[in-house]
Amino acid sequence: MLTTEEFDNWCNRNNLSALQKKTIEIIRSSEPARRVGGGRKNVSGFYPSQKMGRSIQFESHKLELALIYQLEHDW
């Protein structure tokens, strides 16, 4: 996730209004809005992320879980 300074710079580069910036800040700081379901062939679950300090939900063990694991172990 972007730092506060990086986020401010991104907002300035994209000419976002104060309302747009505030809306994005609320989304960035809120919890996920839904629980993952998983389809017939998907394997869903939770990955306990030490980096994020919470469990991350995934719906695909081949794509989403692989990316979560990669990001978790990337400095």
Rank of each mutant, 00 (worst) to 15 (best):
L71P: 00
N42M: 06
S60C: 13
I68K: 12
S55I: 10
E31G: 00
R40Y: 11
E6L: 13
I56R: 03
L71R: 12
L71K: 08
R35M: 00
E5F: 07
N15M: 09
A33D: 09
F46Q: 15
D8V: 11
Q50Y: 09
Q50C: 10
K21E: 09
Y69H: 09
F46E: 14
E64L: 15
S30N: 06
N12Y: 13
L2A: 11
L67K: 03
G53H: 09
L71A: 10
T3M: 13
Q57K: 12
R28Q: 05
H61R: 08
N9L: 07
N9K: 08
L71W: 10
W10I: 00
W10H: 02
E72G: 02
M1G: 04
G53K: 08
Q70C: 11
S30I: 04
R28K: 07
S44C: 15
I27K: 12
Q20T: 08
I68W: 13
R34L: 08
R13C: 04
N42H: 06
R40S: 06
N15W: 12
N12V: 09
H61Y: 11
G37F: 11
N15C: 05
E59Q: 04
I56C: 05
E72H: 02
N12P: 03
L71C: 05
N14M: 07
T3K: 12
E72M: 02
W10Q: 01
S30D: 09
K51A: 08
T3P: 07
A18N: 04
I24E: 05
E31A: 00
V43C: 15
K21L: 13
A18L: 04
F7N: 07
L63D: 03
V36R: 04
G45V: 00
Q50W: 10
W10T: 00
I56D: 03
E59C: 09
A18S: 06
T3Y: 13
H61A: 01
K51T: 08
W10N: 00
K22E: 12
C11W: 15
R34E: 03
L65N: 01
L65I: 01
S55Q: 14
L71D: 07
L63Q: 04
E25R: 05
E72I: 00
E5Q: 05
G38E: 06
E6Y: 11
Q20V: 11
P48S: 06
E25D: 03
